[in-house]
Design a protein around this nucleic acid. Structure first.
Lengths: 185, 185
DNA sequence: GTCTATAATACGATAGAC
DNA sequence: GTCTATCGTATTATAGAC
């Protein structure tokens, strides 16, 4: 594996856990076992350039992961519940949720950097698009699919926040059990 | 107004906008027009003690604000839509949402400090309690009221995140319009 | 492409005068 | 109760050797 990918992988993980300002370059370098010279060779504009590379990487892997799950199930309800089950398992195993969104980065940086805000926005658009397409396959009208997909995105995102805050996966479990009501035509 | 309250008020605002790590002491001091000596007199344990005071202050004012709205309307639906309308207005006017939650602090600090995580958790519990009580008044069963209140909390929280990311109040408007479905018995 | 060494600045926190 | 001055450390970033 090349150094640049290694940096992006490790930094991505750290940013998701502690947010952008919560991670120093030294911490990244230490986990990568490299030095400043190497990092600034691959990312001449420093930390913010690295963050944007991480956001793109997350965007691709998260979108691919959700698409994979949604291809594997016939209906939006089944796919969504499988996805939520995965999130619950992740949380119960690791005590945190990485690989679904980057809430901590959004809320921290949305007011500070426009280019980062837009990169985050793109991810939500992609996720919502996956939901929306599947709902249309289920027979929802375009409008109803759009509003339902938005509700799903917001609910799951908020549910993750509640899990992190209460330090239990119960909120996401509850959301999964209530999902059939949300997905009624 | 005394200095301690002034510090809490200004710091609260800054923390909500930029997160905990995103705000330096110097920025707070400058806006307060005081110096380090004054701040450390009122908060001997420094920044983290100040944050906890801010969280308590936010908790009280947010809870009181939502309770006020919920007292003023006969049903959960009407009260919730009034609350969402207020959030939308705030966003359209100020370009950001302060005074409903502290998402940025939660997601940033949940993994780092347990005492802060718990302080954040308390706010969500309070908000959810207000929703839940009103739903029981509406005739919901205790269980149904609980799960519906959780959905409301998650959805609105996620909706705020989407607004911040997309830099538009549309997600919260859409959530408000879909709310009647969520609040069906 | 990676290293070491260093710069310049910002951070949170403390001591002591008034 | 508020000030000034300072400490020690962490921050991002750069220069130059190899």
């Amino acid at each position: 594996m090349d150094t640049k990918s290694l940096i992006v992988d490790i930094a991505t993980n750290l940013f998701q856990q502690k947010g952008y300002k919560g991670v120093g370059l030294n911490e990244i370098l230490k986990e990568c076992n490299i030095t400043k010279g190497a990092l600034y060779h691959h990312f001449p504009n420093g930390k913010e350039e690295l963050l944007i590379a991480c956001l793109q990487s997350m965007n691709e892997s998260i979108t691919a992961s959700i698409e994979g799950i949604f291809r594997g199930y016939p209906t939006t309800l089944e796919a969504s519940q499988a996805m939520l089950e995965k999130l619950v398992d992740d949380f119960d195993r690791e005590g945190t949720i990485t690989g679904y969104t980057f809430t901590s980065i959004v809320s921290e940086m949305a007011s500070l950097s426009d280019s980062i805000r837009i990169a985050c926005s793109l991810l939500y658009t992609n996720i919502q698009g996956i939901y929306s397409n599947k709902l249309e396959e289920d027979g929802f009208s375009k409008e109803k699919a759009y509003s339902t997909a938005l509700m799903m995105t917001a609910t799951i995102e908020g549910g993750i926040m509640l899990c992190l805050t209460q330090n239990t996966s119960d909120p996401l479990k509850m959301i999964s059990s209530v999902l059939p009501n949300l997905l009624k035509k």
